[in-house]
Design a binder for these strands. Sequence first.
DNA 1: TTCGCTAAATTTGCATTCATAATTACTTTT
DNA 2: AAAAGTAATTATGAATGCAAATTTAGCGAA
Lengths: 227, 227
Amino acid sequence: MTKILQRNLYREVADRVGDLIEHGELAPGERISEKQLCERFGVSRTPLREALKVLAAEGLIELLPNRGARVVKLTVKKIKDTYDLMAALEGLSGELACQRISDTELSAIRALHDRMMGYYQERDLAAYFKANRQIHESILAASDNEVLQEMYSNLSQRVKRVRYSKKMTEKFWAHAVKDHEAMITALEQRDSHRLGQILRDHLCNKLDLATLEGVVAFDDEPEAANS
Amino acid sequence: MTKILQRNLYREVADRVGDLIEHGELAPGERISEKQLCERFGVSRTPLREALKVLAAEGLIELLPNRGARVVKLTVKKIKDTYDLMAALEGLSGELACQRISDTELSAIRALHDRMMGYYQERDLAAYFKANRQIHESILAASDNEVLQEMYSNLSQRVKRVRYSKKMTEKFWAHAVKDHEAMITALEQRDSHRLGQILRDHLCNKLDLATLEGVVAFDDEPEAANS
DNA sequence: TTCGCTAAATTTGCATTCATAATTACTTTT
DNA sequence: AAAAGTAATTATGAATGCAAATTTAGCGAA
């Protein structure tokens, strides 16, 4: 039962503008020219403006009345706040997953976990990351809470463009692996409280503030919106 | 520093359509006629359609391609899921508030709490509810996490139209009051873990599934979206 | 009567056009 | 030359118009 995906022009445009933001082609704080984007995508202003409204509601851009759209500037605080939230949501997903997960879902996650451990042994970082992502997504899916999933993916979208240095240290990696061992144990024991705790802490580790400082432009006041 | 509030037609329309949904004037699952709403508000289709896009992004309505907009049907499961999420967010707000709250904010909440207890003694339900809401909002504000606040108010919007019977029983009320006593204690002790726990459990109590069953129409499949 | 097909009417999606606000460029004044 | 005020330009906000899809109504056959 896959979600019905609507292919409207405005949705298409919103996705593509989102990509531009993610890949930094639209700079943070930069004023988004409607005309320019219209020409780029070959659409009229109507669907483009609808797309901008949606992106604003999703938190990727902000709309200043009569003054156009701007890409939201990600400050360190904003990223930190978003990660705090995502950690809480991951925690909840773990708790719910423990209560609701089916045996087939569980064994699928176990298989993913074992595969991932193999990748760790081989030091195959790319494969490890992929399996890792799949595990977290599977737990989220097993939580069987659509609102939660929707909100998580929205938050994830917002910080997607932050690409902190991916040079995982050995120590860091070992720690993450240890987390995952504890995770699968808690999940198989249906220890919801414990899995929740692990997942909350686990995500916090992912956000290394030190590396972050260099990536995000400035942490000054978001905008001098008032005249 | 109040948020700059944009007064665009589309935002105005979105708010008013939101009100219509909240007050049940637009029935769940009902097809929303663009023309009808345009005439009602005296605006053209452009801002109305933009408003619908935003409302869809906010989760109040859903847009079917070429088939118009529908008010999202709230099933018992969806409401339950939303409350689970809100509970997690309230918990997080408590944890963060403990870490970040200032003394002046704290004493303001203490004052609110004491006032609320007075209303409880007098059995002034309306005043009690108002103070209660203010306390929760204050904690949320003290958490100093804008993303969290935004998400919480969005979720709260979604379930606003669910008005379960407000006949608070004595026992129930006493329990809530007890929760609040524990809350203010934990907050003053800056016991973040404990306050988080209390807030998570507290909200769960608010959602009485028994009373809910009668209010929400049906809990059948959300929609037969596929042909 | 019920089912299926076809055509009219309605509704949605998008482009274009008009009005208004903001920005830029230019002129004038000190 | 710098600052300030004004006109020209550009961008945004909203309304209208047109094409395509969907829904509704009407008709005929089983």
